[in-house]
Design a binder for these strands. Structure first.
Lengths: 230, 230
DNA sequence: CGATCATTTGACACCGGTCAAGTTTTGTGG
DNA sequence: CCACAAAACTTGACCGGTGTCAAATGATCG
């Protein structure tokens, strides 16, 4: 999966910028492989993280093992803030990632940082609102369509320009999530995700040259299957 | 529905406290009846609101009318912040409410306000994570149980003390939402909510002296049906 | 090339949605 | 306070979309 389009995939300099107000603030940059755990739900929330590059998912587990992926974050996004002294989710990379971290207490003492967080958290909250609609009210087909559209840049949003006329309206999406992770994000089972993709293939809506490459043949058509248009 | 337990139901003085940094900041306090709309999704997001008293829901609609209630807010909670210049949800009172508002641009210019928002938004985000688990992974029975437990103060949380032994572990909940609103919050239909409550009644888990009064006969037992314990 | 894991596909069950009555509650006017 | 209408809620019958379980197929990596 490529970094999510839409906002701040630029240089990740927020921690650097805002943590300097203290005296000996240490910023550490680490490289993670794909599917490495950064922290677990319930761990002491003593660090905040910023994604320089890569993809990270936040998820929660129920005691019987059911999992819900609650957020998918990309370059420029920040995570690890917590309202208690424990993380409320686990964090795991979905793709190789470069991630900076610093001490949460220090970051939070910086006024500028908290102001920056205001913007970041608002975005995250609005994304969660949208995702709640998906989880609570959309069919399996609509969920997968919405998911695929997330990775099509500059399309499907409020200011969607629509397809260029008399040109194929295609877009190639490269997934960096397994079917299980997609299912856990969309509130479905792995089998349902697979079946929906197969149906889309059968109907000529997508082509799948590899399991993790999906060519959307008609972006505008796909967009109208998300339940969000018309 | 009573104000949600758990955090900041005290005096709502945040707007007052933090908006004073500008010179002629105007704070307006209004009284709303039950089921009055405060703003609609897509309206210009020029005000921020603080609940002094009452209950407010935020919801989103799909074009075909499907509705998802994404947040339920009580005294001390703040809403109307937006990352764009349009509200991403509609806001409507669930109970008679006293609500303060001020100009968003003015509030956001206040450093202290943004810092305060950091804490507020973190809480809201964590609530949304929890709600995503409910919407994505819980059965109808678990959803309704979880919903009812929201209104039982000091129980079911991480530090749950459990029931007092040799005493009935009861709790009376007064709902301020219609079945339709509960359904739209839990991602169910009105009929399913009704059926689950009837089943709980049949099993002696609850007593319903009125449609909006639910006496939980065994809080600890109810808590174990939320899917969150063992 | 074989072992292992991920994905797809099939058969079937069942939870929760849909549609359609009933029933209870609420609100209004006399 | 009652009569009536309207709204909210409950209940039943039925069905369809997803989940479950199992097997087959395809991908990946020594």
């Amino acid at each position: 999966m490529d970094a999510l389009p839409g906002r701040n995939n630029g240089v990740a300099d927020e921690l650097l910028q805002y943590s300097r107000s203290g005296d000996d603030v240490k910023i550490t940059e680490s490289v993670f492989d794909s599917h490495e755990t950064i922290f677990f739900e319930g761990d002491p929330s003593d660090r905040v993280y910023e994604i320089v590059d890569g993809v990270v998912m936040l998820y929660k587990l129920l005691p019987d093992g059911r999992r819900q992926v609650v957020e998918i974050l990309g370059a420029g996004d920040i995570f690890g803030m917590a309202s208690s002294d424990l993380y409320d989710t686990s964090a795991e990379t979905l793709a190789p990632a470069t991630i900076r971290h610093t001490v949460r207490r220090q970051a939070e003492q910086s006024e500028g940082w908290q102001q920056h967080m205001y913007t970041k958290l608002l975005h995250q909250l609005e994304d969660m609102h949208e995702h709640a609609v998906l989880l609570g009210r959309k069919s399996a087909f609509e969920r997968v369509s919405t998911f695929l559209m997330k990775f099509v840049i500059d399309r499907g949003g409020v200011g969607c320009v629509g397809p260029k006329l008399d040109a194929p309206d295609e877009s190639l999406v490269t997934l960096k999530m397994t079917r299980q992770e997609i299912a856990d994000y969309l509130g479905l089972t792995i089998e349902t995700v697979s079946r929906v993709l197969s149906t889309m293939k059968k109907r000529g809506l997508i082509v799948m040259p590899k399991q993790d490459r999906i060519l959307i043949k008609n972006v505008c058509g796909m967009c109208h299957m998300t339940g969000m248009h018309e």
